[in-house]
């Protein structure tokens, strides 16, 4: 069990590592080339892995609805977005804001597919995530080194 727990933790490290490598490539060559190389190397790696694990098992059911293949298209955009923001807002804030968007969107997807069955926990979760995002932005506006020059933000700061 300890081994499994460490493996699951390590998996998170791998995901963060992938984002950091893509983010570094984005600095040099922009978000879309970062997305291209990410998908190319991942594709080649999985080719090898699939061949090693189960050669010949590349069959797909004809019943697969076409729209699920859009996952790959969305993935290309997601990696581009993630690579672009990493160096602009830092590693921790990237993880947290992406996570917040992910959690709330998957809650909406679940609600549409199966309805909400655990309103108290889910409501509390959403409130905590929004509170964290608000607190993160609120504080960073007040830090002189990170002060923004965007006029719209100064207006919100003055109102707040």
């Amino acid at each position: 069990m300890i081994g499994l727990i460490l493996l699951a933790l390590f998996n998170g490290v791998l995901i963060a590592l992938a984002r950091n490598l893509n983010g570094r490539l984005n600095l040099a060559q922009g978000p879309f080339k970062a997305s291209w190389f990410n998908h190319l190397t991942g594709f080649l790696f999985l080719c090898g892995l699939l061949f090693a694990v189960s050669p010949g098992e590349f069959h797909f059911s004809e019943k697969v609805p076409g729209y699920v293949y859009l996952g790959g298209v969305i993935g290309a955009l997601y990696v581009a977005v993630n690579s672009y923001i990493l160096h602009r807002i830092g590693a921790v804030k990237s993880v947290l804001f992406v996570l917040g968007g992910q959690m709330i969107t998957s809650l909406i997807i679940d609600a549409m597919q199966a309805g909400l069955h655990n309103l108290v926990m889910q409501g509390a979760g959403v409130i905590l995530i929004f509170a964290g995002m608000y607190f993160s932005l609120h504080k960073s506006r007040n830090q002189p080194t990170e002060k923004t020059s965007a006029s719209s933000n100064q207006r919100t700061e003055a109102e707040a």
Partner: peptide, 15 residues
């Protein structure tokens, strides 16, 4: 953009 990226990630995972 980061929040939108998270939304894309959730949809991607679902598909």
């Amino acid at each position: 953009l980061a929040i939108a990226g998270g939304a894309l990630l959730a949809i991607m995972i679902s598909f």
